[in-house]
């Protein structure tokens, strides 16, 4: 019996299909990475390999799980330099995914 998380992941794969933005491969030794917060429409197991694979194929860059925030929102690291146009295209591709409600940059705050 498949888990709901796996089913959602497979659904993501089937809906999204081919990469929405196949940017150039990011060098393995990229100096920095871009951390984002993805809010899914439905509760999603953010660590599921199929979810990561789908996010990666959608964005065209490597994606790794960072942390869970809520059952529907998780932080991910996009393997692309912050100022790289491919990174911006990757973010835009993820934003228009119908299963993603929102995508925000995971930015820093500090005490005041």
């Amino acid at each position: 019996m498949r888990s709901p998380g796996l089913r959602r992941a497979l659904l993501l794969v089937s809906v999204l299909g081919a990469p929405a933005c196949a940017g150039p491969a990011v060098p393995a030794a990229a100096p920095t990475t871009r951390q984002v917060i993805v809010g899914f429409v439905d509760p999603t197991d953010g660590t599921a390999p199929a979810v990561l694979d789908t996010l990666s194929k959608t964005s065209g860059v490597g994606v790794s799980f960072v942390a869970s925030i809520s059952p529907r929102s998780h932080a991910y690291r996009l393997n692309c330099p912050v100022d790289d146009p491919a990174c911006k295209r990757a973010i835009e591709a993820l934003k228009v995914n119908p299963l993603i409600q929102y995508l925000n940059l995971d930015q820093k705050k500090d005490f005041r």
Binding site: I37, D106, K109, D110
Partner: peptide, 17 residues
């Protein structure tokens, strides 16, 4: 939620929740 040079939104929001 804040460490060296502050903290990430993802940690702050998880902490708030």
């Amino acid at each position: 939620v804040l460490g060296k040079c502050g903290g990430y939104d993802s940690d702050i929001i998880a902490g708030m929740r």
